[in-house]
Write a protein that binds this DNA or RNA. Sequence first.
DNA 1: CTGAAAGCGCTTACAG
DNA 2: CTGAAAGCGCTTACAG
Lengths: 338, 338
Amino acid sequence: MDPVSRRAHDRPPTIRDVARRAGVGVGTVSRVLNQSPLVSVDRRDRVQQAIDELGYRRSSRARNLSLGRSQAIGVVAPFFTTPSVVERLRGVVEALTGRGYDLLLFDVETITQRADAFRHFARRDRLDGLLVLSLPILEDEMTALRAEELPLVLVDARRPGLAQVVIDDAHGGELATQHLLERGHRSIAFLGDLPSPLGFTASEDRRRGYARALRRAGIEPERALEWRAPHGREHARQLAEGMLARRRRPTAVFAASDVQAVGVLEAAEACGLRVPEDLAVIGFDDIEIAAVAGLSTVRQPLRESGRLGAAILLAEIDGVERRSEELPPLVVVERRTS
Amino acid sequence: MDPVSRRAHDRPPTIRDVARRAGVGVGTVSRVLNQSPLVSVDRRDRVQQAIDELGYRRSSRARNLSLGRSQAIGVVAPFFTTPSVVERLRGVVEALTGRGYDLLLFDVETITQRADAFRHFARRDRLDGLLVLSLPILEDEMTALRAEELPLVLVDARRPGLAQVVIDDAHGGELATQHLLERGHRSIAFLGDLPSPLGFTASEDRRRGYARALRRAGIEPERALEWRAPHGREHARQLAEGMLARRRRPTAVFAASDVQAVGVLEAAEACGLRVPEDLAVIGFDDIEIAAVAGLSTVRQPLRESGRLGAAILLAEIDGVERRSEELPPLVVVERRTS
DNA sequence: CTGAAAGCGCTTACAG
DNA sequence: CTGAAAGCGCTTACAG
């Protein structure tokens, strides 16, 4: 076996192999690889030919080490298969497309995973930037992140001093409740998330808006009308069945998410209640299932939030001043459940 | 400013800083980092202390270059926000959890993106292994992949000689159709995907099973009963409305996916048809929306397919012989639309 | 324009 | 057990 083919078989060609074959220095090869103008046409051609003949491809691993960057951005997402999270992710992917960054995904469903994510994953050494979706950050995680000097953008999470893209959840809760009030309802229940170990706040924020709207309408919010279950359709359904079986049942329900609202719809059907005649229901998010179920809801710009978050992160990585673009406003989508 | 804090401020500490502070060689530091037993307790302690004092963390970037690996696996997924794909991804993430591999996600929605994925992304240099979901691989992409010698596993895609986890789509189509036949239907329509530029085959495979089941029941499949739309609920709904408006309309529909079946359900409602009395409907996949819509369907083990694919890939990376575990069988889930 | 050399931050034979 | 050195495959001043 001649030396060339042996080499070709043993390991992928390196920049040195190319230099040797083209009869130039590795610096020159690197320059043509990086489209530097400081290369004569003559050598450029020779190098290019050697590259083609050898089937050479530059090692991004080595390049990144040399350049001190990763060419990758990380996304930390809790329960990433949740429809609303998927939709945000979709926006992130859209914004990243064609930008030459790899997307590293990190799912977190437990506090252990969150700690892992921030300790091992959120590192300057591995990532050029980090996007955190819907996950509140703890104090000590924050100091670690700060030490990392890693460009960081929060989507659907708040933190003073950090770049973030958020909606006004309380306002959304108000809109939903107002909608129900305008339809003449006076006994409106709220069904939201039980506090999670991960500390999500959206559900409670929306409930605050609900209470505010009630008060403005002269109705004192009742604890007995506030229900909370672990997130998910099934849990919501079970809880709602209990709620609707009560003697004094509400005439309308505001659910803190579409997923839960669909559970309420199922409970209503199980209880033989007509929707919206016997029970009006409104959700939050406007994910696809809401359209399918004919569910009235508050639309929040999910995909757009991911897209915007990623765009801001990319700008930050490029050292461009952080743009503060606005998300489209929340709006009530009226369908047949209200 | 003293040298130490200057250094600390300028850049993260390296293994050399640790060695210097501990008064040992970098090799020794590397050894304690890698839990080599070839280090005296004395030095191990000194090194550990220096690490703690400096807040040193090893650069995985440099480590990977030195070791010649990436510690990452790539996932190529078409339209990754499609519920069935999300569910497979979920399985992949589950199998990867705690295994120390990063997950690189690559979405492909166009043939350009697919070419990109295989050219720039599917590289030994960037990945330790690759998982391809639901995407047929072209001939020349395959030769490139082979040259890469990258461990590769296909999920929901076939290719002779490659590790893969697949279901028998034609059989699934048979099951669905048989179910409808057993309910007494004789005029059964099929609604599936229009051929996609990406070359997905599941829909046509399922249609073949449908035709087979009909023939076995002594019914000759009619071209007029085979309908195809671009994937998606809306397209299916529109197509189905046309189909149901015909003079001679079918009494049942087998849709090649739940997403499309839900579109059929919407069309039925729009046409004032009762389900299942006037029109029976069965889908395929058993994604969450099927449960919500009360849709009868053929359940395929989506999450399990991702989990299994990832497990096989991990084993292959570790040089373990490829295990050929089986997926749970396809089964008809009977709900209220049939 | 160009090549030799140093450097990115690790790992691992090699020779004690 | 241990340190000095070479090597992983690039990039980029530096000195022509």
